[in-house]
Amino acid sequence: MIELDTIDRKILRALAEDATQSAGALGRRFGLSQPATWRRIRRLEEAGAIAGRQLDLDFAALGFGVTVFLGIKLAAKGRVSLEDFERAIMAIPEVQTVEHILGAYDYRLRVTARDIADFERVLRRRIMTLPGVGSVDANVMLTEERLPGPLG
């Protein structure tokens, strides 16, 4: 685990809000030079505190107005391997995340679709036909709020 000081935490919070900010802009904001800020960011990346930077798409603006969270319990019969299931489910483009979890379900999926009819098509033709799928529980997302995380 990396030791974080106040400036490290501020840099992480700022990058979590907008990962496109330059080291120079962050340095000016927090009273550091561009090279000093860049070294801090590099140290955070090398320590694994920054695992990468990603592009967040607005699915609704792209025509995907429905997000559904699925809980999937694999069937006991047939004993499909977890790797085979994961490989098959990740090949479905509408599936945005696949989480192997402990609890009532074996997997939690985030699925995006154009509308409910499109989601039903994905569910019936792609997800339910996969080998090993036992039961499925669906929760339609109404709204989403993002929190900055536990950076203190």
Results as ranks from 00 to 15, higher is better:
E3W: 03
A117Q: 01
D84V: 07
G24S: 10
L57H: 14
L55D: 06
D18Q: 01
I11W: 04
R29E: 14
V80H: 02
A14T: 12
K77T: 12
V140R: 15
G52A: 02
D115S: 00
R108Y: 09
A19T: 10
A23Y: 03
V80C: 01
G149M: 02
A19Y: 04
L32R: 09
D5Q: 03
A117D: 13
G24E: 02
A61E: 05
A113T: 05
A49C: 12
T129W: 02
R39N: 14
I127P: 07
G52Q: 03
M128R: 15
Q54S: 14
A36M: 07
T6F: 11
R43E: 02
Q34S: 13
M1K: 09
H100W: 00
L102P: 00
D8P: 01
R125F: 05
A104M: 12
T97S: 08
E3H: 13
Q34A: 15
S135K: 15
Q34V: 12
R124W: 05
T67E: 15
R110Q: 13
P93Y: 02
E144I: 09
R146E: 11
R114C: 04
R13D: 12
F85P: 07
F59G: 07
D56I: 15
K73G: 12
R28D: 15
R43H: 03
L109W: 01
L109P: 02
R121M: 07
T20Y: 01
A138Q: 12
D137M: 10
G152Q: 07
V66R: 13
G65M: 04
P35E: 14
L123F: 01
D115E: 00
R121V: 04
Y107I: 01
T129N: 09
H100C: 06
S81A: 13
N139K: 13
D8Q: 00
I92A: 00
L44H: 11
I92K: 08
N139C: 12
I2S: 11
G71N: 10
V140S: 05
M90L: 09
A60F: 08
A14V: 11
V111K: 03
G71L: 09
E94K: 05
A88M: 00
F59N: 08
S81N: 08
D8Y: 00
I2T: 06
G52Y: 00
R121G: 06
I116R: 05
T143E: 15
S22Y: 12
R29D: 13
L62V: 05
A51V: 15
V133D: 06
L44M: 11
R114Y: 09
R126I: 01
A51I: 11
T112C: 11
I2R: 03
R125C: 08
A104K: 13
